[in-house]
Amino acid sequence: MKTIKKTILALTLGLLYSFSSNAQDQSYNNMLKVGFNVGAAVPTENASANVGVDLGYQYLVTPGFGIGIATGYNHFFGNQNDGIDNNDFGVVPAAAMFRYYPKQKGFYAGAELGYGFITGDKYVASNSLVERPDGGVYFKPELGYHNIHWNFALQYTKVFTGDTGTIGSQDYSVGSLGLGLTYNLPLGTKKFKE
Protein backbone atom coordinates (compact mmCIF):
# COMPACT_ATOMS: atom_id res chain seq x y z
CA MET A 1 0.00 0.00 0.00
CA LYS A 2 2.90 2.38 0.74
CA THR A 3 4.25 1.83 -2.78
CA ILE A 4 0.87 2.77 -4.28
CA LYS A 5 0.75 5.97 -2.23
CA LYS A 6 4.31 6.93 -3.26
CA THR A 7 3.51 6.23 -6.92
CA ILE A 8 0.34 8.38 -6.79
CA LEU A 9 2.29 11.21 -5.13
CA ALA A 10 5.11 11.02 -7.70
CA LEU A 11 2.66 11.06 -10.63
CA THR A 12 0.77 13.98 -9.12
CA LEU A 13 3.94 16.04 -8.64
CA GLY A 14 5.11 15.18 -12.16
CA LEU A 15 1.82 16.32 -13.67
CA LEU A 16 1.89 19.54 -11.67
CA TYR A 17 5.40 20.31 -12.87
CA SER A 18 4.85 19.44 -16.53
CA PHE A 19 1.64 21.47 -16.92
CA SER A 20 2.39 24.42 -14.64
CA SER A 21 3.95 26.68 -17.30
CA ASN A 22 1.07 26.06 -19.74
CA ALA A 23 -1.53 26.73 -17.04
CA GLN A 24 -0.05 30.13 -16.28
CA ASP A 25 -1.05 31.74 -19.58
CA GLN A 26 -4.09 29.88 -20.92
CA SER A 27 -7.56 28.99 -19.68
CA TYR A 28 -9.53 25.94 -20.80
CA ASN A 29 -13.03 24.54 -20.41
CA ASN A 30 -11.62 21.06 -19.63
CA MET A 31 -9.30 20.55 -16.69
CA LEU A 32 -7.63 17.92 -14.61
CA LYS A 33 -7.87 18.75 -10.91
CA VAL A 34 -5.07 17.42 -8.68
CA GLY A 35 -5.11 18.11 -4.97
CA PHE A 36 -4.38 17.22 -1.38
CA ASN A 37 -6.59 17.28 1.71
CA VAL A 38 -6.23 16.93 5.46
CA GLY A 39 -8.93 16.67 8.09
CA ALA A 40 -10.14 15.61 11.51
CA ALA A 41 -12.42 12.58 11.76
CA VAL A 42 -16.05 13.37 12.61
CA PRO A 43 -17.06 11.66 14.85
CA THR A 44 -13.85 10.29 16.37
CA GLU A 45 -15.06 6.85 17.46
CA ASN A 46 -12.84 4.70 15.25
CA ALA A 47 -10.59 7.24 13.49
CA SER A 48 -8.76 10.40 14.53
CA ALA A 49 -7.71 12.16 11.31
CA ASN A 50 -7.24 11.74 7.57
CA VAL A 51 -4.91 12.82 4.76
CA GLY A 52 -5.57 12.30 1.10
CA VAL A 53 -4.90 12.89 -2.57
CA ASP A 54 -7.70 14.05 -4.88
CA LEU A 55 -7.92 13.59 -8.65
CA GLY A 56 -10.74 14.78 -10.87
CA TYR A 57 -11.73 15.78 -14.39
CA GLN A 58 -14.00 18.80 -14.84
CA TYR A 59 -15.82 20.18 -17.87
CA LEU A 60 -17.18 23.72 -17.66
CA VAL A 61 -20.68 23.54 -19.13
CA THR A 62 -20.93 27.32 -18.66
CA PRO A 63 -18.32 29.71 -17.20
CA GLY A 64 -20.09 29.31 -13.84
CA PHE A 65 -20.99 25.60 -13.73
CA GLY A 66 -18.77 22.54 -14.02
CA ILE A 67 -19.43 18.81 -14.00
CA GLY A 68 -17.02 15.92 -13.93
CA ILE A 69 -15.73 12.80 -12.21
CA ALA A 70 -13.62 12.44 -9.08
CA THR A 71 -11.48 9.83 -7.36
CA GLY A 72 -8.38 9.72 -5.16
CA TYR A 73 -7.32 8.14 -1.91
CA ASN A 74 -8.02 9.20 1.69
CA HIS A 75 -6.15 7.52 4.54
CA PHE A 76 -7.90 7.49 7.94
CA PHE A 77 -5.81 6.91 11.05
CA GLY A 78 -7.41 4.51 13.52
CA ASN A 79 -7.50 5.36 17.21
CA GLN A 80 -8.08 3.62 20.50
CA ASN A 81 -11.62 3.86 21.85
CA ASP A 82 -12.58 2.26 25.20
CA GLY A 83 -10.16 -0.63 24.74
CA ILE A 84 -10.85 -1.09 21.00
CA ASP A 85 -7.62 -0.76 18.94
CA ASN A 86 -9.12 0.50 15.67
CA ASN A 87 -7.14 -0.14 12.48
CA ASP A 88 -6.23 2.45 9.84
CA PHE A 89 -8.29 2.28 6.65
CA GLY A 90 -8.55 3.99 3.29
CA VAL A 91 -11.33 5.33 1.08
CA VAL A 92 -11.19 5.35 -2.73
CA PRO A 93 -14.14 7.33 -4.13
CA ALA A 94 -15.74 6.90 -7.55
CA ALA A 95 -17.96 9.96 -7.80
CA ALA A 96 -19.68 12.54 -9.97
CA MET A 97 -18.44 16.09 -9.35
CA PHE A 98 -20.47 19.32 -9.49
CA ARG A 99 -19.12 22.89 -9.08
CA TYR A 100 -20.80 26.30 -9.06
CA TYR A 101 -18.63 29.39 -9.66
CA PRO A 102 -20.61 32.67 -9.32
CA LYS A 103 -17.59 34.67 -10.59
CA GLN A 104 -14.33 33.92 -12.40
CA LYS A 105 -12.47 34.43 -9.09
CA GLY A 106 -13.86 34.18 -5.57
CA PHE A 107 -16.34 32.02 -3.70
CA TYR A 108 -17.46 28.67 -5.09
CA ALA A 109 -19.55 25.72 -3.92
CA GLY A 110 -19.39 22.10 -4.95
CA ALA A 111 -20.15 18.50 -4.13
CA GLU A 112 -19.14 14.99 -5.07
CA LEU A 113 -21.58 12.09 -4.94
CA GLY A 114 -20.91 8.43 -5.65
CA TYR A 115 -19.54 5.32 -3.98
CA GLY A 116 -16.62 5.12 -1.54
CA PHE A 117 -14.64 1.85 -1.54
CA ILE A 118 -13.13 1.17 1.89
CA THR A 119 -9.70 -0.51 1.88
CA GLY A 120 -7.36 -1.81 4.55
CA ASP A 121 -7.33 -4.53 7.16
CA LYS A 122 -10.21 -7.02 7.01
CA TYR A 123 -11.17 -6.25 10.60
CA VAL A 124 -12.29 -2.99 12.22
CA ALA A 125 -9.83 -3.39 15.10
CA SER A 126 -6.68 -5.38 15.81
CA ASN A 127 -8.33 -6.88 18.91
CA SER A 128 -11.69 -7.75 17.29
CA LEU A 129 -13.03 -10.17 14.67
CA VAL A 130 -15.73 -7.73 13.48
CA GLU A 131 -15.20 -7.14 9.75
CA ARG A 132 -15.03 -3.62 8.36
CA PRO A 133 -17.50 -2.53 5.65
CA ASP A 134 -16.41 -2.68 2.01
CA GLY A 135 -17.85 0.76 1.22
CA GLY A 136 -20.97 2.86 0.96
CA VAL A 137 -22.56 5.96 -0.50
CA TYR A 138 -19.93 8.71 -0.74
CA PHE A 139 -20.81 12.39 -0.26
CA LYS A 140 -18.40 15.35 -0.16
CA PRO A 141 -19.76 18.92 -0.11
CA GLU A 142 -17.30 21.83 -0.11
CA LEU A 143 -17.17 25.62 0.08
CA GLY A 144 -14.13 27.56 -0.93
CA TYR A 145 -12.22 30.19 -2.84
CA HIS A 146 -11.02 29.74 -6.41
CA ASN A 147 -9.12 31.41 -9.19
CA ILE A 148 -8.29 29.94 -12.58
CA HIS A 149 -5.42 27.84 -11.25
CA TRP A 150 -6.18 27.04 -7.59
CA ASN A 151 -9.07 25.98 -5.34
CA PHE A 152 -8.92 26.27 -1.53
CA ALA A 153 -11.84 24.61 0.25
CA LEU A 154 -13.46 23.61 3.52
CA GLN A 155 -14.69 20.05 2.93
CA TYR A 156 -16.86 17.48 4.66
CA THR A 157 -16.33 13.87 3.58
CA LYS A 158 -18.73 11.06 4.50
CA VAL A 159 -19.18 7.41 3.51
CA PHE A 160 -22.49 5.95 4.70
CA THR A 161 -21.86 2.36 5.81
CA GLY A 162 -25.02 1.51 7.74
CA ASP A 163 -24.55 -0.80 10.75
CA THR A 164 -21.65 -2.78 9.25
CA GLY A 165 -18.53 -2.72 11.43
CA THR A 166 -20.28 -1.89 14.72
CA ILE A 167 -18.43 -3.13 17.81
CA GLY A 168 -20.54 -2.91 20.97
CA SER A 169 -21.53 0.75 21.34
CA GLN A 170 -18.96 1.93 18.76
CA ASP A 171 -20.42 2.61 15.33
CA TYR A 172 -18.10 2.36 12.32
CA SER A 173 -17.80 5.93 11.09
CA VAL A 174 -16.13 7.21 7.92
CA GLY A 175 -16.32 10.99 8.00
CA SER A 176 -14.04 14.00 8.26
CA LEU A 177 -14.07 17.79 8.27
CA GLY A 178 -11.02 19.33 6.69
CA LEU A 179 -9.23 21.56 4.22
CA GLY A 180 -8.41 20.87 0.58
CA LEU A 181 -6.02 22.44 -1.93
CA THR A 182 -6.46 21.70 -5.64
CA TYR A 183 -4.47 22.75 -8.71
CA ASN A 184 -6.23 22.94 -12.10
CA LEU A 185 -4.32 21.55 -15.09
CA PRO A 186 -5.74 22.79 -18.43
CA LEU A 187 -6.82 20.24 -21.04
CA GLY A 188 -8.75 20.37 -24.29
CA THR A 189 -9.95 23.39 -26.20
CA LYS A 190 -8.64 26.83 -25.30
CA LYS A 191 -11.49 29.21 -24.47
CA PHE A 192 -9.65 32.49 -23.93
CA LYS A 193 -6.29 34.07 -23.11
CA GLU A 194 -5.81 35.57 -19.67
Rank of each mutant, 00 (worst) to 15 (best):
Q80P: 00
I8T: 08
G66I: 00
G35T: 04
K193D: 05
L185Y: 00
G110K: 06
L187S: 07
G52E: 07
V51C: 08
S27L: 09
V137S: 09
T161G: 01
A153K: 02
K33P: 06
A94K: 10
I69H: 05
R99W: 01
M31G: 11
G188V: 05
G90V: 01
T182N: 13
Y183D: 04
S169E: 04
L187V: 02
K2V: 00
I84M: 06
T157M: 04
K158I: 07
N30C: 07
I167T: 02
T182H: 11
E142V: 09
I118A: 02
H149C: 10
F139C: 14
G66C: 04
P133I: 14
L13Q: 07
Q155C: 06
K33H: 14
I69A: 13
N151H: 10
Q26S: 15
Y183T: 04
Y138F: 15
L9S: 08
N37C: 06
G144C: 01
F98D: 08
L129D: 13
Q26R: 11
L154V: 12
F160V: 14
Q170W: 13
N87I: 01
T182K: 14
L177T: 01
G52V: 06
E45A: 10
E194L: 10
H75M: 03
G144E: 03
G165D: 02
F98V: 11
G68Q: 03
F152G: 05
Y57N: 09
G56Y: 08
V51F: 13
K6F: 00
Y59Q: 12
L129Q: 12
K5L: 04
S27R: 08
V38P: 11
N184T: 05
G162L: 00
L16Y: 11
S48F: 09
S126L: 00
G56P: 05
K33D: 14
Y123D: 07
I84R: 09
V174N: 04
E45M: 09
H75I: 00
D54R: 15
A49T: 15
Q24F: 13
G110E: 10
P133F: 14
V137M: 09
V42E: 07
V42A: 10
W150K: 07
T182M: 12
V53T: 14
T166A: 15
V92G: 02
T71V: 05
T12I: 09
N151W: 07
A109V: 11
S126I: 00
G120D: 03
L177R: 00
G168P: 03
V174I: 13
G188Y: 06
Q58S: 15
N79L: 01
A10G: 02
Y59R: 15
T119R: 14
